[in-house]
């Protein structure tokens, strides 16, 4: 590119500095330094009031106390399950929007799918509570239909948590999938069919390889959001939710044991980062591309 008309070097440096100042302030003061601080916090132990020593005690506690690591594993497994379920539910809808519906119908369906997600997660969770609790709409309906004699409590089960998590994550799966499937040329499917492909083999050999970037992007984002969710598991799971973010909250806010909370936070961050990294590795994509897609 041709260069701009000459400006004094000091002036250019000043302008560049001014332009970069907000970004550096934001990233260092609110992201990098707080996380470094959090790491330091997690590697110390209180030995007397206002007396600390470097130690691995917080992490030892985590591995020594079955409750903690079981909750951690449970959170990870349920998150993975929720991610898989979200993919299963979202894929047919994404396919319908991208390939089956046409023109206005497709755009309309897409918008209709997005609208619930403009509403706060709190509101959506309230809806599920009204639907599922013992005195709620679905138990009453079941009694009315004669399927149960007494209203049953549908809240506070693991399945309830899963329903809530899938519901809350759908948007983040549908959007990248639609974008990805729309770019799949119909002629490829026609050609595969013409060459003797059947529905399942076309899906496996043409559609899924093409959609892999969208699937990865969706899965990474959904897994990460699910893992870090707090509202849905605590409200729909109640006291039995045993979600790891709850443990962090308890340590930090209720027990004021920041060292322990920091260690828990780091473990969660490590898991989340590892899964993002693994997802990128498996699909051979770049981080920045995935984030732009999602």
């Amino acid at each position: 590119m041709p260069e701009a008309p000459a400006a004094a070097p000091w002036y250019r440096r000043l302008m560049l500095g001014l332009l970069l100042a907000p970004a550096l302030l934001w990233l260092f003061a609110l992201i990098v330094l707080p996380h470094v601080d959090l790491a330091l916090l997690s590697f110390r132990e209180r030995v007397a009031p206002r007396q600390y020593v470097a130690s691995l005690a917080q992490y030892r506690t985590f591995f020594g106390e079955p409750l903690y690591w079981r909750v951690f594993v449970r959170t990870a497994v349920l998150s993975a399950l929720a991610t898989a379920l979200t993919l299963l539910v979202a894929f047919p809808i994404a396919w319908t929007i991208a390939k089956l519906a046409r023109g206005r119908m497709s755009a309309l369906l897409f918008v209709v799918c997005l609208i619930p997600f403009w509403v706060s997660e709190t509101v959506r969770t309230l809806g599920w509570m009204i639907l599922l609790r013992e005195s709620g709409v679905l138990p009453a309906l079941l009694v009315h239909l004669g399927l149960t004699t007494q209203p049953v409590e549908l809240l506070y089960h693991d399945a309830t948590i899963l329903v809530g998590l899938v519901y809350t994550s759908l948007l983040f799966m549908v959007v990248p999938l639609v974008g990805n499937l729309e770019s799949l040329d119909n002629a490829l499917i026609e050609a595969a069919y013409d060459l003797g492909g059947k529905g399942w083999s076309i899906l496996r050999e043409i559609v899924i390889p093409h959609a892999a970037p969208g699937i990865t992007a969706g899965c990474i984002v959904v897994f990460m959001l699910t893992l870090g969710n707090y509202l849905t598991p605590t409200l729909l799971g109640g006291k039995n939710s045993l979600w790891f973010t709850e443990q962090i909250y308890t340590q930090f806010i209720t027990r004021f044991n920041w060292e322990q909370g920091a260690a828990f936070g780091f473990l969660l961050l490590a898991l989340s980062t590892a899964m993002v990294w693994l997802g990128l590795k498996v699909s051979g994509q770049r981080f920045s591309d995935v984030m732009r897609r999602a």
């Binding site: 990098v32 330094l33 916090l41 990460m224 870090g228 909250y249 989340s272 984030m291």
Partner: peptide
């Protein structure tokens, strides 16, 4: 670095800023 805040769970952003 500008994209990292999007992959850090919100709870952890919260506690790290709180502690700092």
């Amino acid at each position: 670095l500008m994209l990292t805040p999007l992959v850090i769970p919100g709870v952890i952003l919260g506690i790290s800023i709180l502690a700092f």
